[in-house]
């Protein structure tokens, strides 16, 4: 009802007026739902979103239910731009179902991560029904480090290797990478701290690092 009234009234500014969990919010024209929510101090959980890089949409924890007229969708808020009159629900049953299952699966995927355990506990997920393959694993392959290395640092010292369930964080061609300048951006954006232990495998032997791409 609120949404309808708003859409009839021509907005005086170029802001997008819509609602999140019943609260009226305004977004700048290029904002996503997630950015608008953060600007209004409304919490939507994420693991792969980082303000420094382009949204990638891999963790799917930020999913929200959107309603416009009769169209109901569950979509990633980090990638979706709001339209006027949109109703966004951040805690509907469909949304919570996705989040709980992703978190329960993450507990099995990254059993060593304290951050994921804490986040899962907030959603009432404390144990997992899925097989734990590597009890030491922390990396969830969210892609933040790969993106920051490429987009912010301007090199490609990190990449994903293999595909699907075998997907791994690697250096290109699986050799220590000369392009790495050891800036540590990847470590600083990592949501679980998994890169801390891996940085040396990226950089390789410091004494042998010469040639193209090496920052002096």
């Amino acid at each position: 009802m609120n949404a309808k009234k708003e859409s009839k009234k021509p907005p005086k500014d170029n802001l997008v007026h819509f609602s999140i969990d019943g609260r009226r919010v305004q977004a700048q024209p290029d904002w996503t739902i997630l950015e608008t929510a953060r600007a209004h101090r409304l919490h939507i959980p994420t693991l792969c979103f980082h303000p420094a890089i382009h949204p990638w949409g891999s963790c799917r924890l930020c999913v929200v239910e959107t309603r416009l007229n009769d169209k109901v969708e569950v979509t990633a808020s980090c990638l979706t731009k709001p339209v006027a009159g949109l109703e966004v629900l951040t805690h509907s049953s469909r949304v919570m179902n996705v989040r709980r299952w992703v978190l329960e699966m993450l507990l099995a995927e990254c059993p060593a991560s304290r951050e994921i355990k804490e986040l899962a506990a907030q959603y009432g997920v404390t144990s997992t029904r899925f097989a734990i393959l590597d009890p030491e694993e922390e990396c969830l392959k969210c892609g933040r480090c790969v993106a920051v290395c490429h987009e912010v640092v301007g090199v490609q010292a990190l990449t994903f290797g293999s595909r699907g369930v075998a997907k791994k964080l690697e250096t290109p061609y699986r050799v220590p990478n000369n392009a790495c300048i050891g800036c540590g951006c990847c470590v600083s954006v990592c949501p679980t701290g998994a890169l801390q232990a891996r940085l040396d495998t990226v950089r390789g032997d410091l004494s042998r690092r010469t040639g193209h791409g090496f920052a002096h």
Partner: peptide
């Protein structure tokens, strides 16, 4: 599908494995 998933998003990469379990 588990073999053919690209592995980008978590529900597909982990979920197909979990469903298969």
């Amino acid at each position: 599908l588990e073999e053919e998933s690209c592995g980008k998003c978590l529900p597909c990469r982990l979920g197909l494995k979990g469903m298969l379990e």
